[in-house]
């Protein structure tokens, strides 16, 4: 374990690239594979095809079929093999083509990856990364749009991550590869190519378990992660124009989640709006809400509020209604500010 794993490190070069989120993910894997021979990458169509979203484009060409390879069409094989490789000392990155298809690999994730360190008393560990595109907004219906992060957040032993910016995507994925624990790395596919930002070419990591404060504010805290973040920022900017000061916290990591940053923010603003696109019932934000009311009951100026997906399967033609867009967030914010 190096200091790199622990801290958001200084960047070794000033060179930056303008990248979107999926390009940043590609660069993260490229850099980690250059740095560490133990890193191997596999999944369905990740080789010559470069992945159905092109996250792995060009990697087989650079690293060869030995390190970047296509597997049989079997998520149980992919996750299971990643566990066995990690136990034997490799650092596998396994791509599951859509988070909706993690089901066949679920037992491997919860019974093997999540528990092998614990049940063996630390004799065996599974330092692997499962990367998978998740969330809606791509008109994919319910088998290409779901947000299953709560299933995995509910399983001790897994770390669960979801970036919302290219910079974070690169830094978090590099930290995930270096983590000695299994990491489920959800990629919000609807913002894969939504925007570009400057991403350092050099080596840096974003520490797992640390939230980012995207906007500082005094009147209301919006907490979110992943694909909802661009809309959350729009809401903050719109409210700012009306004289309302909104703090926006991007969790980035769901497990472990950054209680301290969230609680500090809500202690200051007294109002919390929790935003996600996963179905409302047993949504991870329920845990965040619970913690806020337990720790900050006296500081709250309004009930903790959630904008989330609905308790229906993810719909096809109705997905714009399903997703929590800026208007729904604005209405929820207005209600909170009216208390």
């Amino acid at each position: 374990m190096t200091a790199l794993q622990d801290k958001e490190t200084a960047v070794s070069t000033s060179a930056t690239l303008s990248l979107n989120l999926i390009q940043a993910i590609n660069l993260a894997m490229r850099e980690e594979m250059r740095l560490d021979e133990r890193v191997v990458l596999f999944g369905e169509d990740v080789g010559a095809r470069g992945g159905v979203f092109l996250a792995t484009e060009g990697l087989q060409a650079e690293f060869g079929r030995r390190r970047v390879f296509d597997t049989p069409l079997s998520e149980a094989s992919i996750v299971g093999a990643a566990v066995g490789m990690a136990v034997r000392g490799l650092r596998p990155i396994a791509e599951i083509q859509f988070a909706d298809y993690m089901g066949p690999g679920f037992d491997q994730i919860v019974s093997q990856a999540a528990k092998i360190r614990y049940r063996s008393g630390g004799q065996f560990t599974a330092p692997l990364v499962i990367r998978t595109p998740s969330g809606g907004g791509v008109r994919g219906g319910h088998h290409h749009s779901q947000s299953p992060e709560a299933y995995y957040a509910h399983t001790p032993g897994l770390k669960v991550v979801m970036p919302s910016t290219p910079y974070d995507a690169k830094g978090l994925l590099k930290a995930a590869v270096r983590s000695d624990d299994p990491v489920i790395f959800f990629e919000p596919k609807r913002i894969y190519r939504a925007f570009k930002e400057d991403v350092p070419e050099g080596d840096y990591v974003v520490e797992l378990g640390r939230a980012a404060v995207r906007r500082e504010g005094a009147d209301l805290t919006i907490v979110g992660y992943g694909g909802v973040m661009p809309d959350a920022l729009k809401v903050a900017d719109a409210l700012k124009a009306e004289g309302v000061s909104v703090e926006v916290v991007d969790l980035r990591s769901i497990v472990p989640w950054d209680r301290e940053t969230v609680l500090n923010s809500v202690a200051k603003t007294g109002r919390a709006l929790l935003v996600s696109e996963a179905p409302r019932t047993a949504n991870f934000m329920g845990e965040v809400a619970y913690t806020i009311q337990e720790e900050l009951f006296d500081a709250l100026l309004a009930p903790v509020s959630q904008v989330a997906g609905f308790d229906t399967p993810y719909p096809y033609a109705q997905d714009k209604v399903y997703l929590p867009g800026p208007n729904r967030m604005l209405r929820a914010a207005a209600k909170l500010l009216g208390y």
């Binding site: 093999a81 566990v83 066995g84 136990v87 491997q108 019974s111 093997q112 092998i116």
Partner: peptide
């Protein structure tokens, strides 16, 4: 390797170890 009670749960990981 530490045993899982979940039946056949060790088979795909064993393949992974052999691939490693």
């Amino acid at each position: 390797v530490s045993i899982s009670s979940s039946i056949a749960n060790q088979v795909a990981p064993a393949t992974g170890t052999a691939m490693a």
